[in-house]
Nucleic acid binder design. Structure first.
Lengths: 217, 217
DNA sequence: CCAAAAACTGTACTTGCGGTATGGAAATGC
DNA sequence: GCATTTCCATACCGCAAGTACAGTTTTTGG
């Protein structure tokens, strides 16, 4: 029960690296078990088939993703009570985290699944959609909090602005991987940060920050 | 010579669809030839091995990509002599094009290759890097032309800003595919457009457009 | 301490893929 | 019209992936 959990985790770790580097279809069980130090039957004890491996791989990745976002924006919220400042601080920490990953970001499992959708059953692709929507919703909450305090320079669709961060991250990961330059991901996140900052920096014509939140304090 | 070119094209078309839907590793030659209506020897006449197929697939995709960019921004340049307006027009046309694709964008081959890099030889991954850099360079040229006329609201790294479009497109494709909503890609491009527009719209404090280009006319 | 369940291993089998060898038909140049 | 190039068919091989199943060791609750 205890040891089983450990080997299961090892399998998932090895499989994740392989999937992100070669794709799910080209990830052979043979290779995974060799690297994990077990036999083929050991693998099939933990996972009914390859599809279940995919599902668990994705579940695991999403959970870790949410954990990281929680931690970063949680800490950012501690550092500033202003929602805009907190969000900007969070983005900066996120950029640093992504840029400092040894060897660069290994890849986004959501993107990997997306580019091999025909390999998976509906459960997996549904999970993938839910995952990306929940991340978007989470970012949207931050933007809503900002909007409650700051007026945007231009009319702003919060959904689009929230999705944009996901797009920047997924696109930035690709950019960083292809050019073998982890810093490109980090600076793309900072570019998004600059966009947010510019949107909510008080314009000369309609300078009106802190309408109700400041009034409440 | 004539017919060979046609079947070769058919093979590439079928293979491209399969690669973008299932990944390269899971794309079997057997399946490709079945759908293309030829036999295995027919395939191996046109391509030495699977790796050569990958290379041609990527080459083809990149060429088409550049053709589309040329056409769009070429037409945009005809519609306005102002580099900023032309770029904004081009982005709008690009967004429309992407949103109107029947069934949505099938996927970016560059991203697909990126997420299966260990499957390909150096020629393919080098080609991939060159492709993304050349697109970035092309966008950068537009931004440089804009910078020759307009002053940015905030200090601006042209490389980052150029890369951002690539990231938005690749990320937007993923977003659109996962959520099965082609419009999301289009509106992300429009969001990037809004960012560019905001960056170069004359701020109240330092309103100084058209330094030399306007003076020349 | 000891049953029982959990956590594996060994082996054998089926299937299908990537790739090859060889031969033949069809188009093309001259 | 004929040789040459282009193009594709049949048949086959080696190999590994995925699966099934029976057996064995390890862990653990009571």
């Amino acid at each position: 029960m205890r040891k089983g959990e450990a080997t299961r985790e090892r399998i998932l770790e090895v499989a994740e690296a392989s999937v992100l580097a070669k794709g799910f279809g080209a990830t052979s069980i043979e290779e995974v078990i060799a690297e994990a130090g077990i036999t083929k039957s050991g693998f099939f004890y933990h996972f009914r088939d390859k599809n279940e491996l995919a599902h668990e791989l994705l579940r695991r990745y999403i959970a870790e993703d949410h954990r990281i976002l929680d931690e970063i924006f949680g800490r950012a919220a501690e550092l500033s009570e202003d929602p805009l400042q907190a969000f900007l601080i969070g983005l900066k920490m996120l950029a640093e985290l992504m840029g400092d990953l040894p060897g660069g970001h290994p890849g986004c499992m959501i993107a990997s699944v997306c580019y091999q959708e025909r390999l998976f059953d509906r459960r997996v692709i549904d999970l993938n959609r839910e995952a990306i929507e929940s991340v978007n919703a989470r970012i949207r909450e931050h933007l809503e909090a900002i909007m409650a305090v700051y007026a945007p320079r231009e009319p702003l669709d919060l959904d689009v602005m929230a999705e944009m961060l996901s797009c920047i991250i997924d696109g930035g990961i690709i950019m960083a991987k292809v050019t073998d330059d982890p810093n490109r991901l980090a600076r793309q996140i900072l570019a998004y940060r600059a966009f947010v900052k510019m949107q909510f920096s008080a314009p000369a014509l309609a300078a009106a920050p802190l309408p109700r939140a400041a009034a409440a304090e």
